[in-house]
Design a protein around this nucleic acid. Structure first.
Lengths: 183, 183
DNA sequence: TTATCCATGTAAGAAGTTACATGATTGA
DNA sequence: TCAATCATGTAACTTCTTACATGGATAA
């Protein structure tokens, strides 16, 4: 999945400029995909060259012309074909889990802070997704609900199991076999 | 988080060669990080230049010498410092969710297949994590359990809500407003 | 008055993957 | 007989991010 396909997807929901595509990614794909302007603008130009999108320019005063893109028939077909080939596995990059894995190298208080921060983030994500589920098509509800379900599970898990990485007693046992504390 | 820090982390659990680091990533970090040989070997050489790891070469017959790495004191300090700065957000890349978001552009049967495949993958991940939780330190249990909790939540969610993207009736309503079916 | 919104684009750089080179041993 | 395991490394390539260029209008 590259930014080009992502743009085709957003455009299938309605015509948009590069700027608007970025905004819509933030509000709809937020929790499982994103892209910067530096990748979106070149992607759109390339899609246009390939005839997958069509562009109409609206003149504007005091700022660059707004270029509104829409899918061509070829673009629609391309999107469907890409969707059919989405067999890739999900990939997660979690600095939080890395830190937790090595929690015995950090002070217990620091771990507690990290978990609190994470719970806070999860709470915000859940609230946002709940809100999003209201004004959405069934497919959008499904995807937002999927995110909410996993975030809620993560929240509960953290609350119930944080003692595993915060207990000084457990930590001492393990870390004595690791780095020796210098004098 | 780059591959260099990942290598420092694995080495903090015990000395290892580049090859072994890859294997341990697969068995321990599998569900939230990975790296290829093409990034691990250069990372180790760079870490050695910086004095963060030390290397001992074991001669072998019929294959390249095995280079076993271990953390230096500087390496240990660097790892702790990196762990303290892990404030980055989790990022998920899910082709599955992208496909679901645009499910009204695909035949309902295809969506069903994708969900079945996904349930299968999730089942395998849960089984593997359950197994891993047995023979692990508290921190490793915590991280494996976190993964298991979210995968189980995803599994239940998919089973209970798949109708949202599989129902032909719902699909027809929505997609009639999107692409027109050509003759 | 400072930040954010709008609006597009380029260039340099970071960070990684894939594919290749080499090649014996072992298990299915 | 075919694939996987062990073992390191390089080079080409892909892909994306960050920072910059430009700059008025508007909201806090």
């Amino acid at each position: 999945m590259d930014v080009r396909t992502l743009c085709l997807g957003v455009l299938s929901l309605g015509d948009a400029s590069g700027y608007e595509i970025k905004k819509r990614l933030e509000s709809t794909f937020n929790h499982f995909y994103d892209a910067s302007f530096g990748s979106i603008y070149p992607a759109l130009n390339q899609l246009q060259k390939e005839g997958l999108v069509h562009c109409e320019t609206e003149a504007q005063t005091n700022r660059p012309d707004k270029k509104v893109y829409n899918l061509t028939v070829d673009g629609q077909l391309k999107l469907v074909s890409e969707l059919n080939n989405m067999l890739g596995r999900d990939r997660v990059r979690s600095e939080f889990l890395v830190a937790m894995l090595f929690s015995d190298l950090l002070p217990a208080g620091r771990i507690g802070d990290m978990i609190d921060r994470r719970l806070d983030e999860l709470g915000k994500l859940v609230a946002e997704l709940e809100n999003r589920e209201m004004k959405a098509t069934p497919a959008q509800q499904f995807v937002a609900g999927y995110g909410r379900a996993t975030y809620e599970a993560a929240t509960n898990y953290l609350k119930e199991n944080r003692y595993l990485v915060e207990s000084e007693a457990l930590l001492a046992q393990v870390s004595s076999d690791r780095f020796e504390v210098p004098d």
